[in-house]
């Protein structure tokens, strides 16, 4: 068989496989859409509702700004405390899970903790904590701490597993105890990546701290949910504007912290030049 025939045969097979996959996808879409109970009548009513809805959202109503400010402050506090607590707890767990430093009896339980913390959405963890410790900011802090342990623990473990052994061996060769090996051989190698995770987590906790209130775990989410249920859509609009601006401000602060600790910027440079974030970190952002 010539090379040309071989490649055309291969292309035929590939296109057949792609067509089967596409047909299966189309069948699935039809089947799943039928489960959704969509009807023209419902869509029409929906459009009508949407028009009324947006009509009532504007102009945004900032009259109850004191309530808004109180909720927002609580959200900020939840985010800060959960990040601090989560990072403090994630470091030992993440180190214990690193296969190149720890024996198997330490890595397995640590990995299990990380997987358990990562698999539930923070809001689901928040409802469980609301039932356990009651309504209020405490449940929010605990829920976001769990989320932070999962995320930072996982990335920190990966970072530690990727370090170069040379520096660790050099410090071991001097007869340094384990704590010194960690402090001078391991941590300096992962510090800048750690700052990246930590600021990202602060950002993510800030987003989620505005949401956990929906299930009663404190913060501005509770105010938002109440306004939704009372059909105060102009107040809803005001809260949403406030949340989005706080999240954007949080992103700017996180970029500033990264620029000082990772890129070595001075305070003057921080306010002069535009910031740039490496691409691999962008994919992690969002969720």
């Amino acid at each position: 068989m010539t090379a040309a025939a071989l490649s055309s045969d291969f292309r035929l097979k590939r296109s057949l496989r792609a067509r089967v996959a596409l047909a299966a996808l189309a069948a699935y879409v039809v089947y799943a859409s039928m489960q959704m109970e969509v009807s023209a009548e419902r869509l029409l009513t929906g459009l009508h509702n949407a028009a009324r809805f947006f009509g009532r959202m504007f102009p945004p109503n900032f009259e109850r700004w004191e309530l808004l400010l109180k909720g927002m402050t609580e959200s900020l506090e939840i985010a800060i405390l959960a990040s601090a607590l989560g990072i403090a707890l994630a470091l030992p767990v993440g180190l214990a899970a690193a296969r190149n430093l720890m024996p198997a009896w330490a890595t397995w339980p640590a990995r299990l903790i990380i997987v358990a913390c990562r698999s539930f959405h923070p809001v689901i963890v928040a409802i469980v904590f609301v039932k356990a410790v009651g309504f209020g900011a405490l449940a929010g802090i605990l829920a976001l701490t769990v989320a932070s342990i999962g995320f930072i623990g996982k990335l920190f473990t990966e970072a530690v597993e990727e370090i170069s052994d040379k520096q660790v061996e050099a410090i071991r060769a001097t007869g340094a105890p384990f704590a010194s090996v960690l402090a001078f051989g391991v941590l300096p190698q992962v510090f800048s990546r750690f700052i990246g995770f930590a600021t990202y987590q602060l950002d993510s906790n800030l987003r989620n701290s505005t949401m956990v209130g929906i299930v009663g775990a404190g913060g501005v989410g509770g105010t938002l949910f109440a306004a939704f249920q009372r059909f105060d859509y102009d107040f809803v609009c005001a809260i949403l504007i406030a949340i989005i601006s706080v999240i954007m401000a949080g992103e700017i602060v996180a970029t500033g912290v990264r620029r000082v600790f990772v890129d070595g910027a001075t305070l003057g440079e921080l306010f002069r030049r535009g910031a740039r974030v490496p691409r691999e970190r962008k994919l992690e952002q969002d969720d």
């Binding site: 402050t73 405390l81 009651g134 209020g136 605990l142």
Partner: peptide, 18 residues
């Protein structure tokens, strides 16, 4: 962090009871 700890409304009994 200090400002958050001082002003957040967490009921100490709930924390002990958690």
């Amino acid at each position: 962090i200090v400002a958050s700890i001082r002003s957040i409304e967490v009921i100490p009994e709930f924390l002990v009871d958690a």
